[in-house]
Design a binder for these strands. Sequence first.
DNA 1: GTTGATACGCAACCAAACGTTGCAGGAGGC
DNA 2: GCCTCCTGCAACGTTTGGTTGCGTATCAAC
Lengths: 115, 115
Amino acid sequence: MTTSVDDDLWSAVGDPTRRRMLDLLLEQGAGTATSLSERLPVTRQAIAKHLVVLDRVGLVHGTTAGRERRYEVDDEQLERAVAQLNAVGSAWDARLARIKRIAEAIAANKTNEKE
Amino acid sequence: MTTSVDDDLWSAVGDPTRRRMLDLLLEQGAGTATSLSERLPVTRQAIAKHLVVLDRVGLVHGTTAGRERRYEVDDEQLERAVAQLNAVGSAWDARLARIKRIAEAIAANKTNEKE
DNA sequence: GTTGATACGCAACCAAACGTTGCAGGAGGC
DNA sequence: GCCTCCTGCAACGTTTGGTTGCGTATCAAC
């Protein structure tokens, strides 16, 4: 039951560019707006805006080191996001399973009623 | 590895309103733009547009019955969407698990160098 | 210290997406 | 016939993802 609190995390993770940014950050351990933009098909400024979004929901946090601003994934928050993905997935799976059971029951019933 | 093909399904499911529409359709078996809009905080026209989006990626399909247009969830396609949610989730989980292992190894073995 | 490259932040601008209001038209019930 | 309900379409506003352009701060080299 998608509570409205989830929506911030969902919309953060819903964007394909942000998902790939998280992939890269996990792969490399950390990254800057510039380093990420070199491996993604968007400009540094677009990446920077996405980093702000991800920072706001706590999925990454950045530290300034000299002229660089380095971002890392927040493990706990990402786990929370994964948990919500799984929650929605399994909720739908449960619904689908129930629908199938009902469909089978109806099919059995109809064959009984017929003739 | 988030192929670009996934993005259509993701962005369809990424919108909170569309997620709730799918919830309602699963709960009620089927629904029209009007019936859905009565249980969601947006207008019928907004719902109608979302239904077009969901139809385009195959998550629902609609049939015209008299003056109503009834939409139902496409079970197979929704299962595919769920599979993709789970795929991303477990990929991140695997990364996080690996990072934790490495962190523990580093804690035990003090000699390490950055790439 | 001056110069030059690098990394960043900010502002203006564009296009697409989500949402609204308003209106015309087809299907059912009286 | 008439009236109601459901739908579809068009115009409009706001937010969001993306761009370009410019100013500024840091590091390295001279």
